[in-house]
Amino acid sequence: MIITIQDKEFDTKEITQLYPAGVIKTGYEDETTQVSLEWLDVEAQGKVEVVGFGIFIHLGENEKHTFMFDTRDEMDEEIGRIASQLQA
């Protein structure tokens, strides 16, 4: 099955990981890291600087694609579009 994310097509047979995450500053220069949305909601309230949200796709071990969003609502809308494609 082929799914499309922001005009980029992926064969679901090749996807080894597909997940949403928050992106926060680590506190070291301009470095950022991914954190789970659950951790962001429960543990991080007011403790970290969120710089965005992303949908991350891994194709095997070497190929990775990142789709970044300014707000969680924008990311959630894209996740809804992905889910609709997977349910079709």
Rank of each mutant, 00 (worst) to 15 (best):
I57M: 03
E38H: 10
I57P: 00
E61S: 12
E77S: 06
N62P: 09
G52K: 00
V51Q: 06
W39M: 13
G46T: 12
L40S: 02
V48Y: 04
T66L: 07
V35E: 05
T33K: 15
S36A: 14
F69H: 04
G54T: 13
W39V: 08
E49N: 08
V48R: 04
I57F: 04
N62C: 08
W39S: 15
E74P: 02
V42H: 14
M68H: 08
G80M: 04
R81K: 14
K47Q: 05
D76A: 12
F53L: 14
A83V: 04
L59R: 10
G60E: 09
T71K: 02
G60I: 10
D73E: 11
E74Y: 05
I82D: 03
D73A: 11
H58E: 13
S36Y: 00
W39P: 03
D76M: 14
I79F: 01
E43M: 13
E74H: 06
L37R: 14
E77K: 05
W39I: 07
V42R: 15
H58A: 13
G60V: 07
G80C: 04
N62W: 00
V48W: 03
Q34H: 10
R72Y: 09
E61D: 15
I55L: 07
Q45C: 13
E78H: 03
L40W: 14
V50W: 05
A83F: 01
L40E: 04
Q45P: 04
E77F: 04
L37I: 03
K64M: 10
S36P: 06
R72E: 10
V48T: 11
T32F: 07
M68C: 05
N62A: 13
I82T: 06
I79P: 01
L59M: 08
M68D: 09
F56I: 13
Q45I: 14
E38M: 11
G80V: 06
K64P: 05
D73P: 03
F69K: 02
E61N: 14
Q34G: 07
D76R: 03
D70M: 06
E78R: 01
E38R: 12
M75N: 07
L59F: 04
L37S: 11
I82C: 03
D70W: 02
V42P: 00
I79Y: 01
E43Q: 11
Q34N: 13
K47P: 00
R72Q: 11
V35N: 00
V35W: 08
D41M: 11
T71H: 03
I57G: 01
D41W: 10
D41T: 12
Q34I: 04
I79K: 02
K64R: 15
L59S: 11
L37G: 14
A44F: 15
V51I: 02
H65I: 05
T71A: 09
D41S: 12
K64F: 09
V50R: 09
T33F: 09
G60D: 08
T33M: 09
D41V: 09
G52Q: 00
D70T: 07
A83W: 00
T32P: 01
M75F: 01
V35T: 01
V48A: 05
M75G: 07
G54P: 02
V42S: 15
Q45V: 15
M68T: 12
E78N: 06
D70F: 05
E78G: 06
V50Q: 05
K64A: 12
V51N: 06
